[in-house]
Amino acid sequence: MVNKVIQKAILVVGSQKKLANAVGVSQPNVWCWLHNKKRVSPENVSAIVDATDGKVKAYEIRPDLPKLFPHPERAA
Protein backbone atom coordinates (compact mmCIF):
# COMPACT_ATOMS: atom_id res chain seq x y z
CA MET A 1 0.00 0.00 0.00
CA VAL A 2 1.34 3.40 -1.01
CA ASN A 3 1.67 6.27 1.47
CA LYS A 4 -0.59 8.91 -0.13
CA VAL A 5 1.05 11.80 1.73
CA ILE A 6 4.55 10.89 0.51
CA GLN A 7 3.13 10.25 -2.95
CA LYS A 8 1.71 13.79 -2.93
CA ALA A 9 5.08 15.19 -1.80
CA ILE A 10 6.84 13.36 -4.64
CA LEU A 11 4.33 14.70 -7.17
CA VAL A 12 4.73 18.27 -5.87
CA VAL A 13 8.55 18.14 -5.91
CA GLY A 14 8.81 16.17 -9.16
CA SER A 15 10.46 12.85 -8.32
CA GLN A 16 11.67 10.60 -5.51
CA LYS A 17 15.24 11.76 -6.22
CA LYS A 18 14.30 15.46 -6.02
CA LEU A 19 12.46 14.91 -2.74
CA ALA A 20 15.44 12.96 -1.40
CA ASN A 21 17.83 15.77 -2.37
CA ALA A 22 15.57 18.42 -0.82
CA VAL A 23 15.31 16.50 2.46
CA GLY A 24 18.93 15.31 2.58
CA VAL A 25 18.27 11.57 2.40
CA SER A 26 18.83 8.90 -0.25
CA GLN A 27 16.28 8.10 -2.94
CA PRO A 28 15.88 4.53 -1.59
CA ASN A 29 14.89 6.12 1.73
CA VAL A 30 12.08 8.01 -0.03
CA TRP A 31 11.01 4.75 -1.71
CA CYS A 32 10.81 3.15 1.75
CA TRP A 33 8.59 6.01 3.00
CA LEU A 34 6.41 5.71 -0.09
CA HIS A 35 5.90 1.98 0.41
CA ASN A 36 5.53 2.20 4.21
CA LYS A 37 8.75 0.29 4.86
CA LYS A 38 10.01 3.15 7.07
CA ARG A 39 8.38 6.09 8.80
CA VAL A 40 9.62 9.59 8.11
CA SER A 41 11.77 10.55 11.07
CA PRO A 42 10.56 13.62 12.98
CA GLU A 43 13.78 15.39 11.96
CA ASN A 44 12.83 15.09 8.27
CA VAL A 45 9.20 16.19 8.53
CA SER A 46 9.84 19.94 8.33
CA ALA A 47 12.19 19.45 5.35
CA ILE A 48 9.37 17.71 3.46
CA VAL A 49 6.95 20.52 4.39
CA ASP A 50 9.52 23.06 3.13
CA ALA A 51 10.28 21.10 -0.05
CA THR A 52 6.57 21.08 -0.94
CA ASP A 53 6.10 24.78 -0.06
CA GLY A 54 3.63 23.75 2.63
CA LYS A 55 1.40 21.75 0.27
CA VAL A 56 2.09 18.73 2.49
CA LYS A 57 1.56 19.44 6.18
CA ALA A 58 3.58 18.05 9.07
CA TYR A 59 0.53 16.51 10.77
CA GLU A 60 -0.25 14.63 7.52
CA ILE A 61 3.22 13.10 7.40
CA ARG A 62 3.23 11.90 11.02
CA PRO A 63 -0.37 11.83 12.33
CA ASP A 64 0.87 9.41 14.99
CA LEU A 65 2.79 12.26 16.68
CA PRO A 66 0.06 14.80 17.55
CA LYS A 67 2.12 16.43 20.31
CA LEU A 68 4.98 17.17 17.89
CA PHE A 69 2.83 17.90 14.82
CA PRO A 70 -0.63 18.98 15.99
CA HIS A 71 -3.55 19.03 13.58
CA PRO A 72 -4.64 22.71 13.32
CA GLU A 73 -8.32 21.93 13.93
CA ARG A 74 -7.55 19.76 16.97
CA ALA A 75 -4.81 21.98 18.41
CA ALA A 76 -7.11 24.53 20.07
Rank of each mutant, 00 (worst) to 15 (best):
M1R: 15
M1P: 15
M1A: 15
V2S: 10
N3Q: 00
K4S: 13
K4N: 09
V5N: 08
I6W: 00
Q7W: 00
Q7C: 08
A9H: 06
A9E: 07
A9I: 10
A9K: 05
I10S: 09
I10Q: 05
L11R: 12
V12R: 11
V12K: 13
V13P: 13
S15N: 15
S15A: 12
S15M: 13
K18Q: 14
A20V: 08
A20N: 06
N21P: 00
N21D: 13
N21T: 12
N21G: 02
N21H: 04
A22F: 05
G24R: 07
G24W: 00
G24C: 08
G24L: 03
V25Y: 03
S26K: 11
S26Q: 06
Q27L: 04
Q27I: 00
Q27P: 11
P28A: 01
N29A: 09
V30P: 04
V30W: 02
W31V: 04
W31G: 03
C32M: 03
W33Q: 07
W33H: 06
W33P: 05
H35N: 15
H35V: 01
N36R: 15
N36P: 10
N36Y: 10
N36C: 11
N36K: 14
K37F: 03
K37R: 15
K37P: 05
K37C: 01
K38Q: 11
K38A: 09
R39V: 06
S41K: 12
P42Y: 02
P42I: 04
E43H: 10
E43M: 10
N44I: 01
V45F: 12
V45Y: 14
V45H: 07
S46A: 09
S46L: 11
S46P: 15
A47L: 09
A47E: 06
A47I: 00
A47D: 05
I48Y: 06
I48N: 05
V49F: 04
V49S: 09
D50M: 02
A51D: 08
A51R: 11
A51T: 08
T52K: 07
D53V: 01
K55A: 11
K55D: 04
V56M: 05
K57D: 00
K57N: 12
A58E: 01
Y59N: 07
Y59I: 11
Y59G: 14
Y59A: 11
I61D: 02
I61N: 12
R62Q: 08
R62N: 04
R62Y: 04
P63H: 09
P63N: 07
L65P: 15
P66D: 04
K67T: 14
K67E: 10
L68R: 15
L68D: 14
L68Y: 00
L68K: 12
F69T: 10
F69L: 05
P70E: 03
P70V: 03
P70C: 00
P70L: 02
H71W: 00
P72Q: 08
P72M: 02
E73T: 13
E73D: 15
E73C: 09
A75E: 03
A75N: 04
